[in-house]
């Protein structure tokens, strides 16, 4: 049975947003991590690992980055639950073919896999700014998402569609504030950045983790 709900943590949300903001003229992508076991009814997307901004349509570093992030997740009691991407074009908010391929790869080990696509236009209108997709049984977009809090009552209808939520309703506003006032995007590094300078901690991004507590 598909999970009932997915909740995006402040940390995961902030990292996705910072990644897109740091490289506004490039497409960017990365993976989403969770502490929730496979089969859980409510999934918390707890963290994100930013991967590429350089050649997002080329696969070698993507494959290696995925492997490395997977190993990191396993060592830390997490698993890869999904993939995210943001286009360099503000009007583009559909999952591209590369993302499609990566999500099906994630689905092979995590049937509850998802994808999130940044919707910059929606974000600027005060929405969550994320378009969610679920991978099972086949990849499909979940329309009208991020509209309400997690349901408090359990539905027994097995055909019910999963719902998506932010850990806090005012998260978009706070995240945009941190970008505008502190240029927090400059504290985030992805796998491409790490390959340029191996001192950059792309797996944990500790400075972003520290900032999230002060949001």
């Amino acid at each position: 049975m598909a999970p009932q709900s997915y909740t995006i943590s402040s940390l995961a949300y902030l990292k996705v947003l910072l990644h897109a903001t740091k490289y506004p003229t490039n497409p960017v992508n990365g993976v989403l991590l969770t502490t929730s076991p496979s089969g859980a009814a409510d999934i918390e997307v707890s963290d994100a690992v930013p991967l590429l901004h350089h050649w997002t349509s080329l696969s070698p570093m993507m494959e290696i980055g995925l492997d490395l992030a997977g190993g990191f997740a396993e060592d830390n009691g997490l698993r890869i639950i999904g993939y995210y991407e943001a286009s360099d074009r503000a009007d583009e908010k559909t999952l591209g073919p590369i993302g499609d391929r990566i999500v099906s790869k994630i689905k092979a080990t995590s049937p509850d896999a998802i994808a999130l696509v940044l919707d910059a236009a929606g974000l600027s209108m005060g929405e969550a700014g994320l378009i969610p997709y679920i991978a099972s049984p086949s990849l499909k977009i979940i329309p009208n998402s991020f509209t309400s809090r997690p349901p408090s009552t359990r539905s027994t209808d097995s055909k019910q569609v999963s719902t998506f939520h932010l850990a806090a309703v005012d998260l978009p506003r706070k995240a945009l504030g941190a970008i505008k006032e502190q240029s927090l995007q400059n504290e985030l590094g992805d796998f491409d950045d790490h390959l340029e300078d191996v001192r950059i901690d792309w797996l944990k991004n500790p400075k972003v983790t520290a900032a999230v507590e002060k949001l």
Partner: peptide
């Protein structure tokens, strides 16, 4: 060798070694 220097990201090094 690339991960030999000072101040390299510990998690990154660990993940690469594992890989």
């Amino acid at each position: 060798e690339a991960y030999d220097g000072e101040g390299v990201c510990v998690e990154g090094k660990k993940a690469v070694r594992r890989w």
